[in-house]
């Protein structure tokens, strides 16, 4: 499976052995706990449910309390499930941390991007817009959106202004530059979605 959750700490520069400087993101990933193990027989598929970040029991809803009690797991803030080929090797209460990754591994990182609010069509969809000067009266507007009597309506899925950002995005094939098991830190090459403190899912690509 090789997956865990973490938080974005920030970005910095990382010097490779060749002396080359590359942009890198530091991710803090405290060990996640396996809460529930799903099996083919009972659930129809093999999977592992991970819990990340301790929380207080009284903050949970009754159904969630029951869920954690059932598997004798400590209360966690975030629950994420991954499918695995074989769930035999996992058991509730098992901890998974950054130790499963090594420098040079490739990972996919999933998280929500920064919210941008209500944005126009230029920022949201990359429309070119019109000239700012030279008598132009067309600047950043979306332009014509429909046709004529036929079809007589705006087609569904038309790119228009609206809420932008805060969407789930997966950045694929990031190289792990360093693993610090002492501090539970993961350094990956390149950028990951969201602001500092963003909750991220980190998954190995080798599955």
């Amino acid at each position: 499976m090789l997956a865990t959750l973490g938080e974005k700490v920030g970005m910095t520069q990382f010097f490779l052995d060749s002396g080359e400087a590359v942009g890198a993101t530091v991710i803090k990933s405290e060990p996640s706990v396996i809460v529930q193990v799903k099996t083919e027989d009972r659930d129809g598929y093999n999977g592992v449910q991970l819990g990340y970040k301790d929380t207080e029991r009284h903050k949970l809803t009754k159904p969630m309390k029951g869920h954690f009690d059932k598997y004798n797991a400590p209360p966690k803030k975030f629950l994420v499930e991954y499918q695995v080929d074989d769930s035999e090797e996992y058991s509730s209460g098992q901890e998974v941390g950054v130790g499963q990754f090594g420098a040079g591994d490739r990972v996919d990182v999933t998280g929500n991007t920064k919210g941008k609010g209500f944005q126009g069509v230029v920022k949201r969809w990359g429309f070119s817009g019109g000239p700012d000067t030279h008598g132009s009266r067309f600047h950043r507007a979306p332009g014509s959106v429909g046709m004529c009597v036929e079809p007589g309506r705006v087609l569904k899925g038309k790119k228009l202004p609206g809420r932008t950002g805060d969407t789930r995005v997966t950045v694929q094939n990031l190289e792990v530059l360093r693993v610090d098991e002492e501090e539970d830190l993961l350094v990956v090459k390149g950028s990951v979605p969201g602001p500092r403190g963003n909750i991220l899912q980190i998954r190995s690509r080798d599955d």
């Binding site: 700490v9 920030g10 910095t12 520069q13 010097f15 530091v26 803090k28 501090e183 830190l185 350094v187």
Partner: peptide
């Protein structure tokens, strides 16, 4: 959080 940044950076 800043501590973790400086920890990574301290090597460089």
């Amino acid at each position: 959080m800043d501590d973790f940044m400086s920890k990574v950076e301290s090597d460089f």
